[in-house]
Design a protein around this nucleic acid. Sequence first.
DNA 1: GCGACAG
DNA 2: ATCTTGTCGC
Length: 173
Amino acid sequence: MCAAAVVIELETLEVRETSLCFGEAAFPYVPGLLAFREVPILTEALARLASDVEVLVCDGYGIAHPRRFGLACHVGVVTGLPSFGVAKTPFTAGFVEPEAGRGSWSPLSEEGEVLGRALRTQNEVKPVFVSVGHRIGLDQACELTLALSPRYRIPEAVRQADIASRRALRLPR
DNA sequence: GCGACAG
DNA sequence: ATCTTGTCGC
């Protein structure tokens, strides 16, 4: 597997630094246990970053998780950095379809608790699923997600990390 | 017991 | 995550 950590300049959305880490998976993919598979190598990629990082934008869920502790929570606690998750597909929490415009959102809830938001980052495009990980609030996580997604559905930090890791592994776009 | 479930 | 088919818009 290849883990990628990309530092994005919030003002310009430019890539300031890219860190790649390669290794073998030591844990299978099990829904609900993604962190056990991905956090070790992600932590390594993050540790090799020279830049100062203010907040981690993670590919996956934070507290909108069956155990209320998804990958974004793990990565936040391990690094001590503020973190939140942006997932591309629904998981266990329910939601109503948000309005069609960019910036529209609806609550992600499970067992009567609001755990995150389905947030539309582009007009007429499927929403992403935002939930807090560590040391950040949901409002700020959503604000950052929108600031990082002026043109594409996926926030630039996650999008560029995905592109870098796929390129390194020579996987199709 | 069955279904459904991040990446 | 991966794969495949088809449609839409710049």
